[in-house]
Amino acid sequence: MARINRLTKERLGRCYADLSGVWRMIDRLGLSWQAPAVRAAERDEEDIAAWRTQVWPRVKRGSAPIRGVDRFR
Score class of each variant (00 low, 15 high):
Lys60Glu: 01
Ile48Met: 05
Arg73Phe: 14
Gly68Gln: 12
Arg67Leu: 08
Asp27Met: 04
Ala35Arg: 09
Asn5Ser: 06
Ala35Asn: 07
Ser20Glu: 04
Val22Pro: 00
Leu31Asp: 13
Glu46Val: 04
Gly30Cys: 14
Val69His: 10
Arg71Tyr: 15
Trp51Gln: 01
Ala41Trp: 04
Arg11Gly: 04
Arg67Trp: 02
Arg67Glu: 07
Val22Cys: 07
Ala41Tyr: 05
Asp47Trp: 06
Glu42Lys: 07
Trp33Pro: 11
Pro57Trp: 03
Ala35Ile: 09
Arg14Pro: 00
Asp70Pro: 06
Tyr16Cys: 05
Ser20Asn: 02
Asp44Lys: 10
Lys9Asn: 05
Ile26Glu: 12
Ser63Ile: 01
Leu29Ala: 15
Arg39Val: 06
Arg52Ser: 05
Ala2Glu: 08
Arg6Leu: 09
Lys9Pro: 01
Arg61Pro: 02
Ala49Gln: 09
Lys60Pro: 00
Met1Asp: 03
Arg71Gln: 05
Val38Thr: 09
Val38Gln: 12
Ile48Glu: 03
Ser63Ala: 11
Arg39Tyr: 02
Trp23Arg: 15
Thr53Lys: 04
Gln34Arg: 13
Gln34Lys: 14
Ile4Lys: 00
Trp56Val: 05
Ala49Pro: 07
Arg3Ser: 00
Val22Arg: 00
Trp33Lys: 15
Ala17Val: 13
Thr8Pro: 05
Ile48Phe: 05
Gly62Asp: 09
Asp47His: 14
Trp23Val: 13
Glu46Thr: 10
Asp27Pro: 00
Pro65Tyr: 07
Thr53Leu: 10
Gly13Ala: 06
Ala64Lys: 00
Gly13Trp: 06
Leu31Ser: 03
Glu45Cys: 08
Arg24Ile: 03
Glu45Asp: 15
Arg6Ser: 13
Ala2Tyr: 13
Asp70Glu: 10
Trp23Cys: 08
Arg67Phe: 09
Trp56Leu: 12
Ala49Lys: 03
Ile48Gln: 06
Thr53Arg: 13
Gly62Thr: 06
Trp56Glu: 12
Asn5Gln: 09
Arg28Pro: 01
Asp70Ile: 09
Leu7Ala: 11
Gly13Val: 08
Met1Arg: 12
Phe72Ser: 07
